[in-house]
């Protein structure tokens, strides 16, 4: 839980909002990704900086109304690992 995650450089990604979803076009791969909340929100709070799961979860909870009983950190970790598989997010210290 202590590893830090970082979003791919902002030069690489083009964001485009549709309605309930948004698009990310990755210039490095030519792939269009379609994302929905909470991924959209996670990406928004991450910005350019490297951040731990706990820090991201905290930013989410303070920016958005999150229900008490939900384990935000767990959700964030799962989504971050998905984004990492897609190459959109890097975990510091590895590929």
């Amino acid at each position: 839980m202590h590893e830090k995650y970082r979003l791919a450089s902002s030069d690489a990604l083009i964001h485009h909002d549709l309605d309930s979803m948004s698009l990310i076009f990755d210039r490095r791969s030519g792939i269009t990704h379609m994302i929905a909340d909470p991924v959209t929100a996670i990406i928004e709070v991450m910005g350019d900086a490297a951040a731990s799961v706990a820090a991201i979860a905290e930013m989410l909870s303070s920016h958005f109304d999150v229900e008490q009983e939900v384990d935000v950190a767990e959700i964030v970790l799962a989504r971050l690992e998905e984004l990492r598989d897609l190459g959109l997010v890097q975990r510091e210290g590895d590929g």
Partner: peptide, 25 residues
């Protein structure tokens, strides 16, 4: 129709969306 649905269906209806890269996007 929602814009997401429209976008997805048009990528499916396009034969060269992927081949055009950023220009197509």
């Amino acid at each position: 129709m929602g814009k997401s649905e429209i976008f997805v269906r048009l990528t499916q209806a396009s034969t060269n969306y992927v081949a055009l890269g950023e220009t197509g996007f």
